[in-house]
């Protein structure tokens, strides 16, 4: 368990007298960044990358980057170019191989509103595509309301294991009826530092479900750098709004460029299990 999870629990008890309210706030600060959101995965052979420009925090909508040139490499050898399937979304077909490293090289198009980004090159640091251990079983149980931190309802757990040897990192994504739990604070991550080589029995998720829900759990492998990237966003999300917040900062992307850039191009293998909550 991370120190910040502990701190969140301590804060939770203290904050029983506190209050949180949404405020109307003018945020005048805006610094545009190029955003890369891409992954090599083994759930589908369609590999996708999205390129956009970051927006002011409270503004809705996206600024998609159309017309970029993206080349995919496997162990340093070119596999070809992505095709743009809709504005800002690019696709290539590939069944990745365990143990191989993947990276991309991007050339941005001319961007009339962001001239400083035009024709800039972005190269990702290669990511190892590593096999993830399987979810061995999935189950659920009904739990009573618990001390104000856990609502009454159904909770899902899985059985899995960590292979012997340090350096395995995991992410679990949960889907309820096809919809991902997508708040940064709902990221579920684990480093094998404290559980190396162990059976992980009844690994329990804090999301609550109702009768009739279809729940899918995705267990994926992460590189150490990608784990640190996600952990940074998670830590920031859970520490903000607590007593022990850390000064905000940006996670380190695995992308090199001479312009402000954020995001990640990762390679993760997946194991998935689905359960329907019944009587």
């Amino acid at each position: 368990m991370k120190k910040h999870n502990i701190i969140v629990l301590i804060s939770l008890l203290i904050l029983t007298v506190s209050c949180v309210d949404v405020i109307d706030m003018q945020i005048n600060d805006y610094e545009p960044y190029v955003v890369i959101d891409g992954e090599i995965q083994d759930i589908s052979e369609n590999q996708e990358i999205k390129i956009s420009i970051s927006q002011p925090y409270l503004k809705e909508g996206e600024i998609w980057v159309s017309g970029a040139e993206i080349e995919l490499f496997e162990n340093g050898n070119s596999l070809g170019f992505y095709k743009e399937v809709k504005a800002g979304t690019y696709m290539i077909t590939l069944v990745p191989t365990y143990g191989n490293k993947y990276h991309i090289e991007i050339t941005l198009p001319e961007l009339t509103n962001f001239l400083e980004f035009s024709y800039q090159k972005i190269i990702s640091i290669p990511e190892l595509f590593k096999e993830v251990t399987p979810i061995e079983s999935i189950g659920y149980e009904f739990r009573q309301e618990k001390a104000g931190v856990m609502e009454e309802g159904y909770y899902v757990f899985i059985d899995t294991f960590d292979p012997v040897g340090l350096g395995d990192f995991y992410q679990w994504k949960l889907e309820k009826n096809g919809k991902l739990f997508n708040l940064p604070s709902e990221l579920t991550l684990l480093s094998d530092e404290l559980v190396d080589g162990n059976q992980l029995h009844d690994l329990f998720f804090f999301e609550r479900f109702d009768k009739g829900d279809t729940v899918t759990v995705y267990q994926s492998s992460l590189s150490k750098n990608y784990y640190k990237f996600l952990e940074a966003v998670y830590t920031l999300a859970v520490s903000q709004g607590g007593l022990f917040e850390i000064p905000g900062y940006n996670p380190t992307p695995n992308l090199k460029a001479e312009i402000p850039i954020i995001g990640y191009f990762n390679a993760s293998s997946y194991s998935k299990a689905t359960v329907i909550i019944e009587e």
Binding site: D29, E31, P32, D37, K50, S52, P56, Y57, Y264
Partner: peptide
């Protein structure tokens, strides 16, 4: 430390943070 933007990553919205304090 103020946010200076936001971005989408794998279906989640993350903040971009500006200069510290």
């Amino acid at each position: 430390t103020m946010v200076v933007g936001r971005y989408e990553h794998q279906g989640r919205t993350f903040p971009i943070m500006g200069d510290r304090n």
